[in-house]
Amino acid sequence: MTIRVWDYQQEYENERADLLDAVDSVFRSGQLVFGASMRGFEAEFAAYHGSRHCVSVDNGTNAVKLGLQALGVGPGDEVITVSNTAAPTVLAVDAVGATPVFVDVDPDTYLMDTGQVEAVITDRTRALLPVHLYGQCVDLAPLGQLAATHGLKLLEDCAQAHGARRNGRVAGSTGDAAAFSFYPTKVLGAYGDGGAVLTSDDEAAARLRRLRYYGMEERYYVVETPGHNSRLDEVQAEILRRKLRRLDTYVAARRAVAERYAEGLGDTGLVLPTTAAGNEHVHYVYVVRHPRRDAILEALKADDIVLNISYPWPVHTMTGFAHLGYAEGSLPVTERLAKEIFSLPMYPSLAPEVQDRVIAAVREALLKV
């Protein structure tokens, strides 16, 4: 049996009756878009985070893009973020006509090094875009202070941190707005694409609702301002609504998997994940480090274990962003991590015996390299 970094089949079997009922309830409702399921999910997701508004959209990339637009970010502006992230974070900045400006990451947590942010703020800076990476939160306190001092907006990228907390506050509840992805692999994942933006700013929420619906308010064909078609459909909304009730259970299961890895691999030369003080990690992915990463992955592949690297190419090194002018060595921590990190299998239904096979194979591979 091939072991992969993520699999949903067992979770589907466990939840099949509820998921099929969710689909059936939508199909029988007579409303496939902008119906009761979407409204219910938005209300419940907002309540989970203590936010006034949730505006659901079609995917996480558009959640970041529309979140930036709703906060007033556009052509000519700069947005400070990180290069150690999935490319969609940065593509969303580019899509609104703004310029991404990168800072390096902390060598232990791999999160934004907030101490570097102030030095790159200019008169064009409009927003800060921290990424709550791999399942734990960036410390937003210093970023909030910088935003207040310099008149900036703070948009949290929460695509990898559903349910994560810092000092008791859930990810997505601190900034001016927060963008979420519900791609199937996420801690709260749909059976297709989906996304959402949280905000407690009434005006930003109103702009978001217009932006996701062609720029219209309630009446079709009456465009208030140019927008997009970025709606979350009723089927995915109802599935997410059902799964939201199990989010804390998913998180607990992921933490149990992480604890088992720590017990099984803690005495090896592998660098295991570090949880920052004050953080409650949800382990979206279980990222480890080793200088002989590629040799380890080859050894594991020979044992029918196919793993992943999050992320092998920092965004600033990609040809599509060469115009930004970041030379090799400009973000040394990010660049070093890209050569050493890889992800072990992590999902709530990962069976202990399968995880034990992964642990044994990793230990054996470490002896060979």
Rank of each mutant, 00 (worst) to 15 (best):
A177N: 15
K153P: 12
D113T: 07
D176M: 11
E156F: 08
P130L: 01
G151R: 02
D123Y: 03
G168A: 08
C158D: 09
P142D: 04
G135T: 01
M112I: 01
P142F: 02
V120I: 03
R126H: 15
D104I: 12
G115K: 05
A147P: 15
E118R: 11
G151H: 06
A98C: 09
S173F: 04
T174Y: 14
P130M: 00
A148Y: 08
A164G: 14
A164E: 06
F102Q: 05
A161L: 10
H132C: 05
P142Q: 03
Y134N: 13
T122R: 05
V96W: 01
D106Y: 00
L111E: 07
T174F: 14
A148E: 15
Q160M: 15
P88E: 03
L129R: 04
L143C: 09
R166G: 06
L152E: 09
M112G: 05
A148P: 11
Q145L: 08
T89F: 00
V96H: 06
L146K: 00
L129G: 05
D176F: 09
A161Q: 10
L91A: 10
L143D: 07
P88M: 12
C137P: 08
D123W: 04
G135P: 01
A177T: 13
G97H: 11
P107V: 14
A164K: 01
P88N: 08
Q116A: 14
L111C: 05
A119N: 11
G151W: 05
D176V: 08
A159P: 04
A177S: 15
F102P: 09
S173P: 00
T109A: 03
D94V: 15
R169I: 13
T109H: 03
L128E: 06
D108N: 10
H150T: 07
D108H: 14
V120P: 02
A119V: 09
G115R: 08
T109K: 03
A148V: 04
D176L: 11
G172V: 01
V117Q: 03
D176G: 07
V120A: 02
Q116C: 11
D157H: 10
L152S: 10
G151E: 06
A87N: 04
V170M: 15
V117Y: 09
A127V: 10
V117R: 07
L152A: 13
L152H: 07
V96I: 06
L111P: 14
A119C: 07
V101W: 02
D123Q: 14
S173H: 04
V103A: 14
V101S: 09
C137D: 00
G144R: 14
L91Y: 07
A119F: 07
G144E: 12
N167C: 10
V131G: 00
V90W: 05
M112T: 03
A127H: 14
Y110I: 06
L154D: 12
K153E: 11
D106G: 01
V90M: 05
A92Q: 01
V120Q: 01
A92E: 04
F102Y: 13
V105R: 05
T122C: 03
V105C: 14
T125F: 12
